[in-house]
Structure formats: structure tokens, C-alpha cells
């Protein structure tokens, strides 16, 4: 979650990979991967399987649009 703070410029590819990871996180492109990581660390013992990708995206979209999201 906090790679940015401990991040050191090793090489150009590292920097580009880092920017790409930031863009993916910012747009929510990697939301499912982050959900899986969270599930494996926190909920692996509770339930048999995590949600599949399509089900997760449905759930995520419903949650995201419940409050004020956009402004004038």
C-alpha cells in the first residue's frame, strides 16, 4: 500500500513500473488484485472462496456510487 514512501529510483524500468502501479491504483484497475490480497490476509480463514472477478466488480460498483462522488 505504501511503496511510494519507501521507494528509491533504482532504474528507469523501476520508475516506470511504479508509475504504472500508481495509475492502476488511482483508476481502480487493480481493485480486484487488492481485494484478493486483502482477502487472503484477513478473511482466508472465514469463508471458503473469495468473490470471483465479475462478482467483485458488480459489488464494488454498487458500493462506490452510493454517496456524493462528483462535484460541480
Amino acid at each position: 500500500m505504501c511503496q511510494a514512501d519507501s521507494w528509491k529510483i533504482g532504474s528507469v524500468t523501476d520508475a516506470l513500473r511504479h508509475v504504472w502501479a500508481m495509475i492502476r491504483e488511482l483508476t481502480g484497475d487493480d481493485a480486484y488484485e487488492r481485494y484478493l490480497a486483502h482477502w487472503h490476509t484477513h478473511h482466508a480463514s472465514e469463508r471458503a472462496t473469495p468473490l470471483d472477478r465479475a462478482a467483485f466488480c458488480r459489488e464494488e460498483q454498487r458500493r462506490k456510487w452510493e454517496g456524493v462522488r462528483r462535484c460541480c
Binding site: 495509475i23 483508476t27 481502480g28 484497475d29 481493485a31 472477478r53 465479475a54 466488480c57 458488480r58 464494488e60
Partner: peptide
Amino acid sequence: FMRHVRPGRVL
């Protein structure tokens, strides 16, 4: 597309 073809592929 983002619902049925490639779920969650925002980019």
C-alpha cells in the same frame, strides 16, 4: 465491455 467482456479492466 467492463461488465461482461472484461470485468473491472478500467484502463
